[in-house]
Write a protein that binds this DNA or RNA. Sequence first.
DNA 1: TTCCTGACTTGGAGCGTTCCAATTCAGGGT
DNA 2: ACCCTGAATTGGAACGCTCCAAGTCAGGAA
Lengths: 339, 339
Amino acid sequence: MSVARPTIHDVAARAGVSKSLVSLALRGSPAVADASRTAILAAAAELGYRPNAAARSLAARSSRTVGVLVLDLHNPVFAEVLDGVLAEVRAHGYSTMVVTGLDPAIQTSEIDKLLEFQVEGLVLVSHRLAAAAVRAIATETPVAVVTRGDITGPGIDTVRNDDRLGAHLAVEYLVGLGHRRIAHIGGGDDPVAADRELGYRQAMVAAGLAQQVRVLPGSLDDAGGHGAATLALASRPRPTALFVANDFAAMGAMAAAVDAGLRVPRDVSVVGYDGTQLGALRSIGLTSIAQPLTEMGRLAAEGLFARIEGRRRRAQNLVLPAEVVVRSSTAPPAPARTE
Amino acid sequence: MSVARPTIHDVAARAGVSKSLVSLALRGSPAVADASRTAILAAAAELGYRPNAAARSLAARSSRTVGVLVLDLHNPVFAEVLDGVLAEVRAHGYSTMVVTGLDPAIQTSEIDKLLEFQVEGLVLVSHRLAAAAVRAIATETPVAVVTRGDITGPGIDTVRNDDRLGAHLAVEYLVGLGHRRIAHIGGGDDPVAADRELGYRQAMVAAGLAQQVRVLPGSLDDAGGHGAATLALASRPRPTALFVANDFAAMGAMAAAVDAGLRVPRDVSVVGYDGTQLGALRSIGLTSIAQPLTEMGRLAAEGLFARIEGRRRRAQNLVLPAEVVVRSSTAPPAPARTE
DNA sequence: TTCCTGACTTGGAGCGTTCCAATTCAGGGT
DNA sequence: ACCCTGAATTGGAACGCTCCAAGTCAGGAA
């Protein structure tokens, strides 16, 4: 391609000043005389000069970049969190390097790359790393974990919603509608899913429905929700409502209901978790426990900057409220029949 | 955080060799004696040495990184394209820097950042840049554009599907089912959407249905599809099938049908475009014209490396086939009534 | 005039690597 | 004993920038 990009030297030569002054002018130092500044900017524009980030990073001993690891870009949850992170990072004039990987091994290698780039902080959105790995990373650079709160330590901020409380909200909402046979479709061994399941159990007991507790093992995706819901809906007495571990799986559960010849919400109500924009699509209309995903991303980044800029030293563990967002997948149960 | 990371000098001192040999050993040069290599690797491990990417990039005059711009991470189309890009880039031992931005101004500033990082190539997934801007970028670094083929020039590869042909497939498939009143929900002024609309018109004429051509202006999202479909379904005679500009909008259209008291596919068939995993969700089951999204991403990256490595100089414009993926949103039209 | 001051400007020393030419050194051939 | 060779290793010069101590220079005070 283009041979030899112009450097700061070329700009200096063209403007008839020293490279140091060019550096100063380009970074907006007020000490530069107006005439010099004008000449330098003109020369830079004429040459199509573009600063070399690697050189700047090396010389300034600062990359002005934060890294972000997201579990899976297919799940819209992560896109929403990312919105918040990116906006906040941009507001601070930093760059973001985004990497992904479902597999922990890939996650580790991607994080290594970020650290080699000398990122000044790391946001982990739903990682699958071992606690020891996260703590090790936190000794090198500030870390903020979004959606999980189970790993803490010096240098590790967390931002999450209270999944247990969210599950309570779901159960209470369904109970309020008149449901009693409320089954839960679990999300596998994910720590977040475990909390939601626990919250479900506690809330059922608190509502005097200990007898009705029913948990079907599923997973956090479409297929898992479909499979578990199929089983749940085939059992007798059939549940009148399903509280599913996340929106993605809830969509599978809704399909399972249709496949079983049931109508949502007339025959069975479905509640998801996350409050993704996906569930808000008109053809889905999923009632869900909504987390403030974008805000969580924003807060994670904000917290990171507080540490990068030395405004805070202690780790911060934020817990944000979740709320029931009612759409069209829930309704009071059909009047009791002789089941 | 951690003060002063160990450098190659520290490793050299610890292993009792010169920094040059450390550099050689770390990069796996066969010229290094086994004993030295072992000592160096051990020293590096003990110190927790991590190479500095900025320094390497500067000294080697190569960042071994490619940049990727995606329009919008919320649309699963892009996640699928990204899968292909990331896999191919990783296979070449390069890193990827992903940036996003719906707004052309943000896209431009993000691309500037990528260029400052000295990326060695750029993949643009559904950008919204002016042709002149893309051509300017292509003078600095190889560019591959995915999903659009309207901007060409030296240094610009394109990978897309034939949207016009895909639209033909959709119409022919619906005609084959027996549909005649097939309306099209357009996707706005996007060049991709324009091709799909054109293909629809041509295919209708080719099928002898010139009289039935009906195009409703919409957009490439849920709301646009919903609005346009509502209008289409309210008109008389009502279309028996809707061919919608993309999957996202098609989901809105399906919802509009339900809202109008119609059932899909009994009363109206819906065909989308893109073949996203979203449409494959069990509760949606959208028939769609599927593009090989991941493969397109992979090919774009592969083409980029062909240019980075100097194996090819001329621009390449790939057009991949699309295919009808039949799911549950289409069926033969209901037997004709006296409409 | 001389000195001082403050506003600008500058050269050079890094930053942590890679790359290259040059050096060392053991062993084999003579 | 001497030269040659090739394998292994090395020092130093970049790479393009930032940062700092030091320099220049006009104009005002003495």
